[in-house]
Amino acid sequence: MHVTLLAATLAPRATSGLLGERVGERVGEQLAGVDAGADPRCYSRLVNEWFCWDYVRDYRPEIIDATLQHLLITLASVLLGLAIAFPLALLARRYPRLESTILGVSTGLYTVPSIALFPLLVPFTGLSATTVVIGLALYALTILVRALLEGLRAVPEDVREAARGLGYGAGRLLLRVELPLAVPVLVAGLRVATVSTVALTTVGSLVSYGGLGNLIRDGVQGNFRAELMTAAVLCVVLAVLLDVLLVLVQRAATPWTRGRQGQGATA
């Protein structure tokens, strides 16, 4: 019964080229195993378990490569998003008339599904990691501009007054007073942006730069359950690790908030 289901799910996709080799490769491996009289691997086509340690061991280089690609794409996207969000937030704060335009355009971008945004970038950046990074940075941007604006606004006016009274200029006020005080709200935004970027990176598999998403795609197309599940679990683990890292960074950067935990965190 499972075999017919398999055949049925595979048949319409057999044309998509990309998977042909991989499936062949896996069947070949499995047959070799049978010839040698060894136990079939738990990821072999007949057993096809969801959780399979043999898979992780045998395919380790591939998994590590995909995870590294995933991590690099995520970090590059969030950093690029932050680099663009920073001047935009300052502009929006300086010129209130620009604010609704900046927020409106970034929210509009946000509405475009990622799977449609990547193809729209392809004519300009080709089938490359750049396409994915730019696309994801645009999504992160929306969250980060809002977080930055919100964080800067949360700085009490009397603190600003006091700093000015001490002779702080605009630049020094921003760097030494406003930004440090905005850190909790900014980090809350960064956490949201990072965690969703980790999840969204998988969609980059459309242009073959999806990190773990590539494994998920291949797992779906080849009905390779262990590959699909391992990649999905690694995605969640990566997201949680980065989230925890950001919380730790925030704690280290804002020792004064330690008394009142969780105040800056958004829902």
């Binding site: 998988t202 969609v203 797992g219 949680v240 989230d243």
Partner: peptide
């Protein structure tokens, strides 16, 4: 609150794949 936080970390692509391709377990 947490339903949103958890939902965000799970890639929709992966969950769709699990739900749609087969009866997972």
């Amino acid at each position: 609150i947490n339903i949103t936080n958890v939902g965000r970390a799970v890639p929709t692509f992966a969950l769709l794949a699990l739900l749609v391709t087969a009866d997972p377990w």
